[in-house]
Design a protein around this nucleic acid. Sequence first.
RNA 1: GGGCUAUUAGCUCAGUUGGUUAGAGCGCACCCCUGAUAAGGGUGAGGUCCGGUGUUCGAGUCACCGAUGGCCCA
Length: 1001
Amino acid sequence: MMMMNAQPETPNYKQTLQLPETTFPMRAGATVREPEIQAFWEEHDVYKQVLAQRSIANKFVLHDGPPYLSSENIHIGTALNKILKDIVIRFKNLQGFYTPYVPGYDGHGLPIEAAVEKKIKGGRKAVSPLELREKCRAFAHGNLKGQETNFKRLGISGHWESPYLTIDGDFEARQIELFAEMVKKGYVYKGLKPVHWCPVSESAMAEAEIEYADVESHSIHVLFPLKNLEKAYGSPLSPEQATLLTDASILIWTTTPWTLPSNVALAVHPSFEYTVLQTEAFGKIVVATDRLEPIEKLLKQEKSPTKLGTLKGIDLAGLQANHPFTEGKKSVVLNALFVTLDAGTGIVHIAPGHGPDDFQAVQTLNREHLKHAPLPILSPIDGRGLFMAEPFVPEAVQGQFYEKANWVILDILKAQNALVHHYLFTHSYPHSWRAKTPVIFRATEQWFINVDAFRQTALSEIQGVEWIPERGQTRISTMVANRAEWCISRQRLWGVPIPAFYTPDGQTHLTPEITALVAQLFREETSDAWVKYPTPETLIPRLQAILPTWETLPARQKTGFSVQQLEVALAPLLAHPLDSLRKEEDVMDVWFDSGVTHTTVVEARKELLGDLPAELYLEGSDQHRGWFQSSLLTSVMLREKAPYKAVLTHGFVLDENGRKMSKSLGNVVDPNTVIKEYGADVLRLWVASVDFTNDVRIGKGALKQLADIYRKIRNTLRFLLGNLAGFTPATDALPYESLSSLDKYVLHRVALVSEKITQAFAAYEFHKFYQLVQNLCVVELSSLYFDIVKDILYCNAKTDTVRLGVQTVLYEVLLVLSRLIIPVMPHLAEDLWSHWPENQRPNFGFESPPVSILMAPWPEIPAQWKLAPTDAKAFEALLSLRETVNVALEDARSKDLIGSALEAAIIIQPLSADWDFLRAMQETELETLFLVSQVHLQQEADPKAVFGRYAVLAEQEVDGEYRVFAVQAAGKKCDRCWQYCETVGQFTDHPTICHRCHQAV
RNA sequence: GGGCUAUUAGCUCAGUUGGUUAGAGCGCACCCCUGAUAAGGGUGAGGUCCGGUGUUCGAGUCACCGAUGGCCCA
């Protein structure tokens, strides 16, 4: 009233409205705000507080697969992986699980060693092994810092102050202890295996150190005569086959004559057909039928050779040919699928000491058919590439460099009439990138894990694990069933040393007792100690120096070994002069490092992480061959159990066209760039938006859309908060029964969506969350409820019960929605919480509102929110009617007859009995629902006759169900609520407002 | 070359045991509002369901062949 006197002419009614009011900004300002929020979490140690709320008895441990420390920046695939893990962990935690997360890093291996080497002036020779290892260590630690910063910026929560690291001394120590345990259990053996070898540097080469260059090679076709037709295995030949093959020779093709002395087998494809030819110069020869044409040309006969008959590759398997020049040596015919018909004769010369395929084939043959008389892996070449004096090596070749030996072998073959054809040709051949000279495959002594010893246990353990998606089970089962022995030694520097000693009598010493001492050394000095004390003469005294303190060390407790036991174990070494001892120089495969984290990390931190198995491993699908498998195998060796209950895999990140990202294509999406432009929550929302069980895409367009959705969600929250200004839940909230049918319907929808979102998270179907939350904000809330309820919120009196009812709903929705988004968008949720007025903050079961919303429990929906199906249906019918009304209004709008819907009134004529309920409804309720000024229900045949005084602006009919007419609204526009009403002008004190507003003012 | 896998509107996803005219949100176009305002509302246009063949009264859905992309091997 006092205000009235001040402005009697044109009162500013806007000031009498309750417009939204909040400090929660519309724009995220993520670049600034997200780091602030992260600092807030750190300051209040929210991660630890949240963890402390839960009991380890109810654990859900996601064990982190360690990313490799080759770079200080992460790529988008790593971001996807870590965000997925964080979503899972946050959801499980909100649901009440104890969810500690210890991030890990993988730090040994060739890529780091090579990267470090590249940076050293003068190459690796310029530094000592110890210096190189120290540089590798420093490099890895530096990259760890960088990656950690990246991960934290993504909003990943976890034990950042104590991550695990495969290059930590403690880790390395535990790792060799486990290895010694496996040795003791008999799972480990030493054997030969071909590796890339550079005769110039006299060292093994990794795949990554190989480059290809053209080189001139020999192409030769060589005969292996079949002298007797007795098979080494398999079903014997039929009499017809025997006749056909009598005195025949098998023809092979090779480009490396020098590998012929090491031949032990010949490979044929089981399903190819082979023909026996009668030739003029070489008698009967066997070749693949599909290679006949080129072979006939080589023979240079005047007449085509006679074809005597054919037989299948599978029938040839088991035959034993004579070696072309080594007296008494057999060459067993085996079946292999890698045999092709692109070149050669369809029969492949097999020298398992000089080719990985060959090695594989012979290993398989030995395992399947020749267990009791396995074929040997012959490797007569020394480190310099010279032939050694082995009995199966012709004397003329011994001492020769392998390349030179080619010519000698050609002469021998000619002398034996075994050489059918020879010429020189140029082709691409592997070279050492360092020496720029050709490399060869050379079998060297390696450490192996005998997978056969526990393959069946591993396979049955796979059955007991939950694989998500299910196809992962097939994938890993096939791989484990078919995989070869695990070669775990590497001729490298940057890795965990294999802690073996050799005595001059040829004995290998690798015992748990000696290893316990080495492990203690590693704990004190890291595994760099293995090269810091480079010989047994220095190393063993260092180990002995541990003995006097042994009883006081934690290792004593753990291993149970007494000093006496250790001394006994050392005795066989000390029985020899120290300078006659040798120590192993090989290191372990990095897959072994990460493969034992179930024990070196999960078990080692039992108090924090609880008992094995871990609840979940979550990595890219490439890890079926990698980490999932190495972890399974080592765990089965150690305890005959899988280390995980469930394994979740995700696909790879591709560009927006579904192509692989590469620098050369210029389509790489960098997570840090995305964060700078949109913030971590938008990137996290991207992760939640895609079906990650397959490959996923990301690109500029996708991110723009994600940003739009993020803004929609943010604005929805902002509307909720803004319209709760002045609302005190404790005193103002109304009981459910007092709410309007629209209010109840919205709660019903929220209940359903919330339930589905919970299910989606539990099933790891995050894209469903994305779809659901988007639809909730856009459809149910923004365009339906908010749009309708705005009038009530703004125009009704502050304490009006209808208005309080709406605010009650807004408050409840805010409570639910703000928590549903936490797993995916924790920054947004926290930002909201920080702008949430004190008197409106719920306690969430605590004594007072928690400092962070991350500490809140997952929302639980009151059962009464869900409407009976009939009630929900009735309301949905009204909503479909609302759509028809909108079409009519749009029609009128397009004819330029109205602008705002409030300029119109709606006349509805129900035509079928389905709409009887409508006849009983309050017209004012419909006005609210349709956002028009008036609604009239009319049952007369011709509504136009009754409402003749109004011009019909538009009409719509839905198939005999009802008709809708849009007409000009009656009365004048109220200055305050903008609705048209016939009461406007009736009040002398407020001549420009309607009766409703008159009451409110 | 082998194993596993995917392909539905511009984008991200739905699509029950084969069954009317294949859905949603975003984006887009047009319009409205200017009291959620670097917001909000309405209406509408977008699909050779990767291609082919087959099974069937009927195929996005089942079978076979193929194309393209991806992972792991060779």
